[in-house]
Simulated assay, not measured.
Amino acid sequence: MYFVFIDEAGTPGYKKGKTPDGYFTLAGMIVKGENILKLERELQRHKLDYGLPPQEEFKWGSKYSSVGWSYDEYANFREGVFQIIENLAETIIGVVLDKGESYKKNYINDHCDLYQQALYLMMERINMWYEDTGVIAAPTIFVIDSRKNNKEADLDEKLAKSFRGALRTGTYYHQGFPWFSHSPFFSTSEESTGLQLADYCAGPIQQYFSTGKDEWYQKMRGKIRKSPGGKVSGYGIKTFPGRPTIQL
């Protein structure tokens, strides 16, 4: 059994009256079921080593000054998180949507449509990774960072319906996904170690696309899915629409 933990960076929507711009990133971290408890224990131990409560989330974008760290301590903490991912995750897959170009598509009209498109591309790449590695008949459970809020309490259910629809009808490149769970599970990142680590996968990708700064992206690049020749673009990171404008 495999678990896919999916977190986002950036926002899929845009303010009314404004032109959509920037990027929206989904990152999926694939973990074998037998490694889930190890994942939890390693991250909890790592937090304790840095004086953090083991059950408390420290996000990719959290300010290190908020916990009294120096930048070096902050960088070392991040390095340790990446080492946990390196040791216990199978691979990382990213999907990056150019919001300005995506919203020009006639089938992307709001943030739900944009997120759905990113999720479909993620599902395809995960299925392709199975084909790469020869994984057969491996039940796969998706755990997605909850999107619902006080204004839109049905966001998770809308996404679940889209997910189930893709299972029934397939997507452009895949006829179906027979080993994916019937419906994804939604959780807050505070309650899921896997989602907390997926946050550290999405953050560096979004940072690289948005700012061109690739220090942290390069540190996790080795874990991203690649072609047999080592190519990341289109394999481990799918950009939409079109090809990336940066070197992956």
Rank of each mutant, 00 (worst) to 15 (best):
K161N: 11
K213S: 12
S162E: 12
L248P: 07
T211K: 09
L97G: 02
W129D: 10
D7Y: 01
L39H: 04
G100Q: 06
E34F: 08
Q116G: 14
S162Q: 11
G176V: 00
M123C: 01
Q206T: 11
E73M: 14
Y103E: 04
R147L: 10
W60N: 02
I93G: 06
F177D: 11
E152I: 01
G61E: 13
D72H: 14
E56Y: 14
W179T: 15
F186S: 06
I84F: 01
M1C: 11
K38P: 04
D132H: 14
L197F: 05
Y23N: 00
G234K: 08
C201L: 04
K104W: 02
P53E: 09
R147Y: 01
R78D: 06
P12H: 06
I93W: 03
L155W: 03
E124V: 00
V81L: 05
Y71E: 09
E131W: 08
D49M: 12
A198Y: 04
L167Y: 01
S146E: 11
R147E: 11
Q175M: 10
G28H: 04
A138G: 09
L248E: 13
N109W: 02
E57S: 09
F185R: 14
H174I: 01
Q218N: 14
F177E: 09
M1D: 13
Y50Q: 04
A75S: 15
S183I: 10
D98Y: 04
Q175D: 15
G51P: 02
R78T: 06
L26I: 01
I84M: 08
S192M: 00
K226L: 02
T239L: 07
Y130S: 05
N35G: 08
E40K: 13
I84Y: 03
N87D: 15
R168G: 10
A138I: 08
R221I: 06
L37I: 14
P139S: 08
V31R: 00
I246C: 06
T11H: 12
K99E: 01
V135L: 10
L37C: 10
G242S: 15
G13V: 05
E40M: 09
Y71G: 03
N149Y: 04
I85D: 03
R168A: 13
Y23I: 04
Y74P: 02
L159G: 01
E157W: 10
G222M: 02
P178K: 01
L114N: 05
G28D: 05
R221Q: 12
A27M: 02
P178N: 03
R147S: 11
Y107S: 03
L43Q: 07
I36W: 11
F185H: 13
L195S: 06
D145Q: 08
L119E: 00
T133R: 15
F180Q: 03
Q247W: 10
P244A: 04
S181Q: 11
Y107I: 02
E157H: 13
K59W: 01
K238R: 13
E215R: 15
P12E: 04
G10Y: 03
I93R: 07
I141K: 15
E57N: 11
Y14D: 07
R164V: 10
G134H: 00
Y172A: 12
Y173N: 15
M123Y: 01
A202L: 05
L52R: 07
W179S: 13
V67L: 08
E157I: 08
F58D: 03
E215M: 12
V67N: 08
Y235C: 09
A89Q: 05
E124S: 06
A89T: 14
N87V: 09
K32R: 12
Q44L: 02
I84E: 06
A202Q: 08
S66W: 02
D132W: 15
E191W: 12
P54E: 13
G234P: 09
